[in-house]
């Protein structure tokens, strides 16, 4: 697979690898994909008092495109409000990274990871408030 320089850069020097404490109240976690399908992204965000994402971490099992897509979204969501983060679309990820069509599903997973982590955070918050 011939990847773009951006994919290679994110693959070779991925930022934000790691985990946040899932039990922290201000952390939202998502795990998308499946080992049997060849890609799994674990994506986590920490949300500050003003509803902005202050930190994002990822761990990925997958090909270069999956690793680069997940690394990219950890960069993109930081400093964004939850509402803005929800607007990150898989197509933007795929375009930014010049992913070949066969790798489009990696960017779909990345979008799903962001949305599910936000949902998880909101659910936690909702259950605390309720």
């Amino acid at each position: 697979m011939k990847y773009s320089e951006r994919v290679m850069d994110l693959y070779v020097n991925p930022r934000n690898i790691g985990s946040l404490d899932e039990d922290d109240n201000d952390v939202g976690t998502s795990i998308v994909g499946a080992p049997s399908c060849g890609d799994v992204i674990k994506f986590q965000i920490r949300v500050d008092g003003e509803g902005r994402i202050s930190e994002a971490k990822f761990k990925t099992f997958g090909c270069g495109a999956a690793i680069a897509s997940s690394a990219l979204i950890t960069d993109w969501v930081q400093g964004k409000t939850l509402e803005d983060a929800k607007h990150i679309k898989n197509r933007e990820v795929a375009e930014y990274l010049s992913l070949p069509p066969v790798k489009a599903h990696c960017s779909v997973l990345a979008e799903e990871a962001v949305n599910k982590a936000i949902e998880n955070y909101l659910e936690k918050k909702g259950s605390r408030n309720g």
Binding site: M1, Y3, M8, Y11, G38, D39, F61, G62, C63, G64, A66, I67
Partner: peptide, 11 residues
């Protein structure tokens, strides 16, 4: 176990 083949090749 735990890593994907194409991911290894890219490295």
């Amino acid at each position: 176990e735990g890593v994907e083949g194409e991911g290894i090749m890219l490295g």
